[in-house]
Design a binder for these strands. Structure first.
Lengths: 334, 334
DNA sequence: TTGAAAGCGTTACCAC
DNA sequence: GTGGTAACGCTTTCAA
């Protein structure tokens, strides 16, 4: 920490003008090699650092990206959700690789102005939204006039905003094909029914079932988003079921973990009696027992892509949405 | 989003001075009720919002708190670590309750200046460090001259910096007593051996074993921090063990999950043959099978406390470190 | 290569 | 109760 409080003071000590110091420290503009070295050494010795706020005001950029996690109806739902937390971590890494800071905000979307309010404050240069959930319309509207925004989530035709997410339909198809290959014939789909992403995954499953002539057998097991509630939902439904499925596609890894617990509670062996496959590729999936077979969305890669696209939009480019290739990861639950 | 770009423009449209607008909008200073309403309505209609950077510069505060996650030797260790992610989430909530934003930074501590650099930039009003890990000395030094900093972690006697964390020794004692009550007699302690927190937990365990006359039986199972590596470490050690323990205290929930997997891999029944207890109280502990008995550090409560202390330091108070009461949560793994 | 000075968009002091 | 205006600490023209 420095005892010098601003550039002016530092310039006096260095015996040059503030302009020269600024140039020397930022590396921009012409300064003699000698001065630059002298200034740099002095700054290091005194621990001087230019004030970021003042610089931001002058340069009209903050070098900060806002990451927004819209909390859905279930207000408490995301607090400890492994998906959002994991994604945030990856984004933090990707952003800091490019010299950007990450301003984290969890917002309860209220009305249709929450995004505008956030943007208007000028605290950030750009925005990343994790998950469209119920806010698809708001995001879509804002995207028409605010460019530096990239969203993690699904992609629908005609969509204006730039999103990154896995090919959910393909991923769903991948999951169900794997179960069929493993010999499953009575298939269930477990998970939330809301949100564009889950819907697409289910569509992928249905399509393959139709092609295979198994569509009659599909059992739907709707559940809440939140882990604890999901477990209860699934257990209640499986408990009273006429014929137990022999394979379950879960809409997310979190749901899949709930499914595993529910089956465990009912004393049903996985993968012996029922096989289970998740969706996301969260690290935690490898840590449960049995380790979870899943469709990997390559979140780290996705985070890198989001940041890359955002930086390009910041630079004035227009960018298209991107699909990430879903990858089957086979572990012990199938 | 607004088409108005600054206060001056807005003031012209409103037909009053910038000073009046500022007062009307911020609620500070005397303004007639009539003007305030008129200005507020116009601001709402035009979507005008004062620029945060300019305000920050003028007021000399950013209303932003930096949350630092120092990455230890194992650079990749925290990327997806549920503990850090969960803590960050709780902090985000607590901070936003008080109108503060959260600037998230993962830092690779390099040398002893990383904290100074962060502080010197003036991007934040205060700092929260999650975990002291190997940086205890640096934190301690900085705390002597930089006051608005609160650390999640252990507390040692004579420590200068303000920390919040559970009473690790007591928590360790709580864990081992529970295992003994459940009939365990050959006890093992699994987990990382580095860091002040794990050490204290182990001491708590040892002390109770001494008091009970069981101290001869303690088996130590050191492991890495990172989940995957921890699993391997534990499995390797249990595989070749002369006499299997009948109770295992894990240094953290993440370690405990690794222990559960290792036992599963060796076909050992939990809690039938071996009982396992974790430490942290992470939500994910309730989702594994069998659901994990653990010592709850009340992270949400802890996060609230950290923020509370930080705000008081920001206001000039001096604050003492706080211990959180560890609570035993019994689930199915014991 | 360097320095003087004009902003960046607010807030807060001081008059009126 | 309201308006003028000087900061806040920096970057970046423009001149020298």
């Amino acid at each position: 920490m420095s005892n010098i409080k601003n550039l002016k003071e530092f310039a006096q000590l260095a015996g040059v003008s503030t302009a020269t110091i600024s140039r020397a420290l930022s590396g921009t503009g012409r300064v003699s090699e000698e001065t630059r070295e002298r200034v740099a050494a002095l700054a290091e010795r005194l621990g001087y650092q230019p004030n970021a706020t003042a610089r931001n005001l002058r340069t009209q950029r903050t070098m900060t990206i806002g990451v927004l996690v819209p909390l859905g109806h279930e207000a408490a739902q995301h607090l400890s959700d492994p998906f959002f937390n994991t994604m945030t971590g990856f984004l933090a890494d990707a952003l800091s690789d490019h010299g950007y800071d990450l301003l984290l905000s969890r917002v309860l979307p209220k009305g249709d102005r929450w995004l505008d309010r956030y943007i208007g404050s000028g605290k950030v240069d750009g925005i990343i939204v994790i998950g469209q959930s119920t806010e698809f319309a708001v995001i879509e509207t804002v995207s028409r006039r605010y460019l530096p925004m990239v969203v993690w989530g699904g992609q629908v035709s005609g969509q204006n905003h730039c999103s990154v997410g896995s090919d959910n339909r393909k991923g769903g198809a991948l999951a169900i094909r794997h179960l069929i290959e493993r010999g499953c014939r009575r298939i269930a789909f477990a998970g939330p029914t809301q949100g564009p992403e889950f819907g697409e995954r289910l569509q992928g499953v249905k399509q393959v079932l139709r092609e295979t002539g198994l569509s009659e057998t599909l059992i739907e097991l709707p559940s809440h988003f939140e882990p604890g509630a999901a477990f209860e939902d699934i257990r209640a439904q499986l408990e009273g079921i006429a014929a137990m499925p022999d394979g379950i596609v879960a809409g997310s890894d979190v749901t899949a973990i709930g499914v595993l617990r529910a089956l465990q509670a009912l004393d049903i062996d996985v993968p012996g009696q029922v096989k289970v496959i998740g969706y996301d590729g969260l690290p935690v999936g490898a840590q449960v027992s049995p380790p979870l077979t899943t469709i990997d969305q390559q979140l780290r890669h996705g985070a890198g892509m989001i940041v890359d696209l955002l930086l390009r939009r910041l630079a004035g480019e227009t960018t298209e949405s991107r699909m990430i290739e879903p990858i089957l990861i086979v572990r012990a639950s199938t």
